[in-house]
Design a binder for these strands. Sequence first.
RNA 1: GGGCCCGUAGCUCAACGGUCAGAGCAGGGCGCUCAUAACGCCUCGGCUGGGGGUUCGAAUCCCUCCGGGCCUACCA
Length: 569
Amino acid sequence: MARYLITSAIPYINGIKHLGNLIGSQLPADLHARYLRGRGHEVLFLCATDEHGTPAELAAARAGRPVAEYCAEMHAVQARLSQGFRLSFDHFGRSSSPENHRLTQHFALRLAAAGLISEVTERQMYSVADGRFLPDRYIEGTCPNCGFTDARGDQCDNCTKQLDPGELINPRSAISGATDLELRATRHLSLRQSAMRDRLAAWIDGKTGWPILTTSIARKWLNDGDGLQDRGITRDLAWGVPVQFPGAPWTGMEGKVFYVWFDAPIEYIACAQEWVAAGKGRDWERWWRTDRGAGDVTYIQFMGKDNVPFHTLSFPATILGSGEPWKLVDYIKSFNYLNYDGGQFSTSRGRGVFMDQALAILPADYWRWWLLSHAPENADAEFTWENFQAAVNKDLADVLGNLVSRVTKFCRAKFGESVPEGGTWGPREATLAADLGQRLDAFEGHMDAIEIRKAAAELRAIWVAGNEYLQAAAPWTVVRTDPAAAAAAVRLALNLIRLYAILARPFIPDAAAAMMGALGCEDWAWPDDLGAALTRLPPGHPFATPDVLFRKITDEERADWQVRFAGRR
RNA sequence: GGGCCCGUAGCUCAACGGUCAGAGCAGGGCGCUCAUAACGCCUCGGCUGGGGGUUCGAAUCCCUCCGGGCCUACCA
């Protein structure tokens, strides 16, 4: 039994996430956490909401609410939706927690002591009317390159040219439209990533088994231009972890907070402290401190590709720079994007399916199966309703659901609702067991390697093997001439249902529970001994014929949803 | 502009430089009748985006062109 620490990129507090966000980190992380638990390993699976930053402040202001209140409410919403999707976090924390405040300030102190923090004075755009400094993208104006009137301060959406907010013609606040903007000097802390460039590069170079998506993004940042740049880690905001605190080695930083991308990854650690504070665990240090028992922990992070630079460079710079024995990540699984029906998911335009909407129309397992079996691992993937309908109906309803149905109903009709006795395995059963053994090896290999699509395909093939066997054994025919042989076949088929429940549980936990529940069994032990697993339910063991596991998606529903989710939420 | 990724059957995707490029879905045929009009078997289907090159051998490596996508450090 080994120990695994798993974190999912923490979703931003601002609004309900769409299916692209879900498959980009949380769902794959949950799959892996559930799989490792199923195999008997000790797992700590953490996630949280990322609550700081300008968008949170603005969203709260728009809602006419204090930002702390707004975040608390949105955290509850996201927590509820996470539960709805059966995301099995050991704790779902908040980056605004007291634990994260303390820890973020602690890291800043350590980095300062190590000489890795510098103070820089910058000139930034200040909006007098809004009473705040504006991030580049919150300044709009006319593009000096193409004349587009709604260009943003960081880039023109029309001609894609990179801009500096000072270049905009007739600049205005994107928040209020105010034009009384002025450049003001402001002092900030900067993390001297450049000083850690070689150390980070060597660390990345040692990670030969990482996804190419992960390492190529990291290398790009390490080697681009003059190499890894220092990064500002503070902002002129009210909502966040205060930069000025008792014991801080700097002065005059009142009214500033740490940049979200400094404090958000630290929440991975703080979340473990919250987990303890919530009474769910006893010792967070044995997961995070290599000097306190975390030396044997394997730490795996899941995230979308947009998060890779922060997890491969900034956060490791924080960890390494602290000079303290914190656990560093061992494997970073990153994902491309999921697109929606020929375009991108769009939160602002309400294009695509969002987590709350998804659960309102179908149970979590339907979504989990499709998303995981189409995870954007090697390239951007696309959600279409046709594909979703076909995959769900075929894989879940026909191949798996119907198998459970035909076996239990046949048994009930011919032998009653208990595992039939009599008969023995013949060559056909031995062949099936051998085939399943090979497929199980392949499945485990793919799951261990976090090759999610391949694992899903193999799992489906394992289900198909059950139908093939049943078709060949044909107990409905055999029962007329050799009831004992038919009983042996049905007994094996009933045990297959239990096996499938165990293997499928990481993907479709509710259906797996329904299958196991129908069998009146609570033994979820991983089938390390396949032969034993296939005879686990003994003759005479009672079961209950379950309801339909997965209903089919009709053409009418598909057509309706296609229209409903096309845009303008 | 620079960098990275992708392009394989109608669709979604596989394939350490090495048998005849494979699966699923869709299409066609047959079988079965336990089952959610479900299941099984067989079958059709490819100049691996185009063009050059390296190699005994290229989907795979190199160059180039075309097409799609992403990143480019103040959204997070």
